[in-house]
Write a protein that binds this DNA or RNA. Structure first.
Lengths: 218, 218
DNA sequence: CCCTTATGTAATCATCGATTACATTTGATG
DNA sequence: CATCAAATGTAATCGATGATTACATAAGGG
């Protein structure tokens, strides 16, 4: 090991490989490590995240009271990315076409879920941390739901829908998209997933089928 | 402890509380314990199942090579119950009405999933054991899927469907029903679950909406 | 400068899945 | 019966994990 002067406490200025005692932004690094582990298909453990951050196994507990809190923080980060992508997609959809916006929303939703399955699972499953334990996640999700309700209300106002039961349509739409994402996650799409774009095309087809089903006339 | 005659090897005939060395049907008891644990919301551990069977922590591994194998066996048992209930429902639906059978199938599927959420998860999620590791489960599931495909083909043959893309309809239907079940599982139905039947009524409504969407005319 | 607070380490614990060596039963075969 | 091999259960142990505790080190404000 490199020579260490015991009388000089300023460790931050030591040899290059001498890591300073304090990490800098361990909390953030742990969240990133957790998301990274998940996306690699590995199971997320606090210790492995600590290992990746080159820090002792107990260190993470200075930033998170328990494993669930780390997962909740990771979920919040993932949700920010998810939501950001959806908002970009909606920003390109004309406000005058509510069903078009509905479609764009569903496409962006599924696109992200197909490409970030592990992160989607962390966000949605409530297995890694207690369901209502993250107000940010709850509020964020409620806002997304409110968005879709607004689109359906607009569509109904323009007389575009066959049924007036918006609640039912909204639940069905959520179930359809959520179910498609989870089928992908849970391995229910066998080997026509060899073509990367195949699943995403099917997602598009399913969304279009649904919209055609709720839209007035043909 | 009760007197024990060391010269008499016939342990099965001892005092009432003296458990025989061999359990009798440990394999089955372990599977039931696993399903019981899951339905109680507890996480299933091999040790806890062994505890409930009043057996040593190593005993289960005489019947299952590892935890996943136990979960797979539990999944197979759950799938039998699931499938049995669906077949009963289909037995009461007239063969001449394919869309009615489709509806009955979806209702039975969701009814069981709503009432046995933990077991539904074990069957469907592929998190407790490798996905293709149970041929029985795979085959069983494929048969259920084939059932729905047949219904849709019959409906198309009778000219009941608006679209000829049966594959797309079938995937959408699966996603819808699977998504609804998983939303319930993952806690996406907040507190209008207080009324027990409320969710099941919503499930019915969603299925009807879907069928109305794919059926020809109105 | 000192002292409080934040943050990291080391050591330790209980639980879990899994393996190994050993003990007990069962049941087939002679 | 008697014997022995196979099946099944136990005890002890291992490595990994989440979590806690006591202690060490750094940072920053009086």
């Amino acid at each position: 090991m490199p020579a260490r002067q015991p009388s000089k406490p300023r460790a931050s200025r030591q040899t290059p490989e001498a890591r300073p005692y304090h990490h800098g932004d361990l909390r953030r690094v742990l969240i990133d490590a957790a998301l990274q582990l998940a996306s690699e298909g590995a199971e997320v453990s606090v210790r492995e995240a600590a290992r990746r951050a080159a820090v002792s196994p107990g260190a993470p507990f200075r930033h998170f009271p328990n494993r669930d809190a780390l997962m909740a923080a990771a979920a919040e980060e993932a949700q920010r990315r998810f939501r950001s992508e959806i908002e970009v997609a909606l920003g390109q959809a004309p406000a005058t076409d509510p069903l078009g916006r509905f479609r764009a929303f569903g496409l962006a939703y599924l696109r992200w879920a197909m490409r970030n399955p592990a992160h989607f699972e962390i966000i949605s499953t409530g297995r890694y941390f207690a369901h209502g334990s993250s107000p940010e996640l709850t509020r964020d999700n409620a806002e997304l739901i409110a968005l879709t309700e607004q689109m359906l209300a607009d569509a109904a106002a323009q007389g575009l829908l066959r049924s007036a039961d918006l609640k039912r349509i909204q639940i069905a739409g959520r179930a359809l998209v959520y179910g498609f994402a989870r089928m992908n996650l849970d391995g229910h799409f066998p080997r026509w997933g060899v073509d990367e774009g195949e699943i995403e095309r099917m997602a598009e087809g399913v969304i279009d089928l649904f919209i055609a089903g709720i839209a007035k006339s043909a």
